[in-house]
Amino acid sequence: MLRKLFKYDFKGMGRLIVPISLLAIAVALAGSAALFGMKNISGTDIGSVTEFALTAILSIIVITSVLAIVAYSVLCFVVIFARFYKNFFSDEGYLTFTLPVTTRQLMLSKLFASVLWWIAAVIITAVLAVLMFSVSSAPAGAFLNVNILTDMWKMFSPLTGEAGVGMLIMTAVCAVVQWTCMICTVFLAITIGSTVARKGKVIASVGFYFAINSAVEIVFVILATVCGVVLENLDAAGSLAWLDNWTPEGFMYGLLGTIAILYGVTAVIQLVITNSILKKRLNLS
């Protein structure tokens, strides 16, 4: 059943995200072409007025495409939000909640589909951003700066040391866990907002999203402070000598791992609360 639910959630979201993604790619390509044009215009002799006009138009295109790439990820986020809300708390809920499945299955199906599409959206956004950076930093006459990726990698080396791929994977895992947690916050916010508010459920949900985010952040800050105090005391007592043997790379792994665990736990807690509300307090208008 979970697989069936996932199929419909994944396809349903895809029907919106794929066209939006293609549009974003097209706009980014246009922006890259405009960027290339801007860079290489100074070499030509088409007259200063034409050059000025052309540069103005091209820069508008470039700025629009940058904004479009940003808007793209916002739109994808909205699609995730909308799918959950519509499928559960609009009239569609009358069918969704009478399917012979548990609320947990309904929730997890949407979670997997949302996380997968979000990862795709992030990857596409990253590729498009790298593309535009690559064009903007390309040597004269060339379209792309083919060394962009290695250049970027070198920028991060002081942090990652020689770890290479391992660190990359760890970063990716940490990122995915954080995004999953973000989506769980969306789900919880919508569930609380729609259950508590009679009218203006969407606004209430958005409000709760920011509220929950803030609450989580406050908890993290408190945790960090407490940890800091504890660690200081341990350090003073000399119990942390073994840490001196830690490489920067080991430290990064530790840090990323801890972040992943924190976000992972937060995600699970939010899911449990969401499921409990869906099971016990559902009341469609």
Binding site: D91, T98, L99
Partner: peptide, 13 residues
């Protein structure tokens, strides 16, 4: 739910 068929007052598709 697998043996109950529900027709709501509103369209739920």
């Amino acid at each position: 739910k697998s043996i109950v068929s529900y027709l709501p007052e509103r369209i739920c598709f």
